[in-house]
Amino acid sequence: MTKTGKLKIQWGHLVLLAIIAGWILAYLLDARATSMRVSNLLLVQPVAILALILVLVLVPQCFVREQPNDNTLAANNQDTPPAKETPLELAKIGILTAAFVALAFLMERIGFDVSVFAFLVLGLYICGERNWIANLAFSAIFTVALIYGYGAIIPFPFPLAVL
């Protein structure tokens, strides 16, 4: 348990904590700006303060001391990053996530049919389908099935471009 080994910073973990803490702080300030009455801050203020304290407790855990000589400890240590993807695998996750977020924000504007079809084609390709005929056929059929399937049972229309 000596303090040797390189200090490794989990940048992703720091970013996650920064996002959570940033939102909580903004929320607390917004709530306080709305009203300082008890009936507004009764739960939000104490819980937000507790959460911010927890963030402070957790920040040091983003700095992990690597212990190359002690494998058993590293294996048991929950602070080691759980995922061991290669950069390529991480990039795949990144592209798919970005496409998913883009789809969510744009599908109503572009039309569900076109945007969903495009996402499926891209998604299937990223996830490893290299047969273009299978890819395009599946994406087309699935898009049509979803639009008419869901469309038949929900009480409002989907915005569409082509269908």
Binding site: L103, A104, M107, V116, G123, C127, E129, F142, Y150, P155
Partner: peptide
């Protein structure tokens, strides 16, 4: 490779189906 994109899309449709606005997606 088929399941992931499909289920993601189904989830999006489902989240849209709740009240028919982009708030869900």
């Amino acid at each position: 490779r088929y399941l992931i994109p499909s289920v993601l899309v189904v989830a999006l449709f489902g989240s849209y189906a709740i009240n028919g606005t982009a708030s869900g997606p």
